[in-house]
Nucleic acid binder design. Sequence first.
RNA 1: GGCGACGUAGCUCAGUUGGUAAGAGCGCCCGACUCAUAAUCGGGAGGUCGACAGUUCAAGUCUGUCCGUCGCUACCA
Length: 564
Amino acid sequence: MKKTYTITAALPYTNGPIHIGHLAGVYIPADIFSRFMRLTGNDVAYICGSDEHGVPITIKAKKEGLTPKDIVDRYHSNIKKSFEDFGISFDNYSRTSSELHHKTASDFFLHLHDNNFFKEITTEQFYDINANQFLPDRFIVGTCPKCNYEKSYGDQCEKCGTSHNAIDLIDPKSSITGNLPSLKETKHWYLKLDEFQSFLEDWILKKHKSDWKANVFGQCKSWLDDGLKPRAVTRDLDWGVSVPLNDSDGKVLYVWFDAPIGYISSTKEWATNNNLDWEKYWKNTDTELIHFIGKDNIVFHCIIFPAMLKAHGEYILPKNVPANEFLNLEGAKISTSNNWAVWLPDYLKEFPNKQDALRYVLTVNAPENKDNDFTWKDFQARNNNELVAIYGNFINRVVVLTNKYYDGVVPEPTELNKEDLHVLQKVNASVQLINKHVEKFKFRESCNEYINIARHGNKYLADQEPWKIFKTDPKKVNNIIFVSLQVSSILAIIGEPFLPFASNKLKRILNHNDHNVKWKWGNLLAGDLLIKPGIRINQAELLFTKVEDSEIEFQLEKLRKNKN
RNA sequence: GGCGACGUAGCUCAGUUGGUAAGAGCGCCCGACUCAUAAUCGGGAGGUCGACAGUUCAAGUCUGUCCGUCGCUACCA
């Protein structure tokens, strides 16, 4: 049945390029899901954009002697381009600095304000007179009251790990100017989250007990059991969406309040550009809203944003929030500040035309249930032993045999025998399994099952040995090659969500447009014969190429240098 | 400190509501084949299921304690 899906991928924060952790945790799974849902005939809006507000960007700008706008412009285009080059199929990639977003977020805030969902609370915050700004906890350094470490941050001591309030620090200093900060009163708007306690308990703990992932459900339960409290949704800052009220000079919406609204404004932008109705994707109760995020964002997407949407009153709530865990790199935590990462722009430059290899490795080793480790050696092994040796090699065998025996023309099959039908059945069973797993967000299993199709193909060829009987039983060989080409065409169709570049290449090799059945999901599911005898296919081209030891050594060396 | 998720073969992971002798892929060893990017196909070795205790006729699967990894969070469960 055709459905409408609004699929969001966490808005990347524009203070650095995209790295493999982002890809494995969010963008690749969301892309597979989106592509799969399009492939199977659904109406999909795959939405994302740059998250460009918040304190870290203003600090980075200050350090580089630039404006916040300079910083976000730089990374917005960097991120947008690397997503495009990598083949992430967003329907729209917007940015939160856009006018449309400011208006959308501002209106959203006003709507909640007018309906009395906020509480104004005045507190004392640290203020740096010289820098002329309030200081978030992260930008206050002082001596930890517990372990006496002298460079503890305002929110947490890096040495003993305990968290505290900035006010508790001994001898606090502004990390911007080094001055002693003073306390100053400030008023902020707090979302009355507590009023949504019972609603959220019913919605999450009862209605989504079985279909949300254990890590997501557990995290939510922990928050709900604790009891929700009003939460500040504004900040003292001059960079962001201004609070649209009279007595709100110097106040902006907290970045975590405006960022998820970015999903909505990005959808609006897309709808406007394509002459569509954006409300269908956010206000129609038949539409399934799915948020792909990392585990650090669970509370915002499962508690706060749904409360905001519910408070607004017109919006649908997420059907699921398949949060992933984290990806490590060579045994250590990925870190932007320590430059311990594989950056996507670097990868694209250093491994040209190998987008699918990274997609594949990050899919089959995705941190779906627990933190996982990415190693270059594993990357090489999976590329060489699985993509090249199993999938690429199967296609190559079939295409070479077709060219060798039939001058590239698809042979006419006669009655298929037990073995022929058996392999087609096995492939069909794999297709069903892939479908099932993708719907449950089990992308690693679905991708493994995809490779299994090529395994079935290799085994079929090995068992049938057409090269042995070509002279003695040509009719049988006709069938073997025909069936192998049929399997190849199935791989081309269903591989698109996982390995889109290879899939397109394979379609070209097999001349998919010339066959009399459209290579569409429905025809595949119906078990239709996708290839037509008499059609000439092209010469063999390698679908994947090997990754050499020297390339892996180069990457490892690069990481070693960063470490020092 | 509290809460949550996770801890299964060398590596990465599956293991429904507890029940026939613990599974897969990769890696490793042996064999077969040669159409294929020395690729493929078959077979094999390898695990006291983090530790300890408990419930049960029966536990990787439930309970408790502890240890480890990661995340969330605060003096509050």
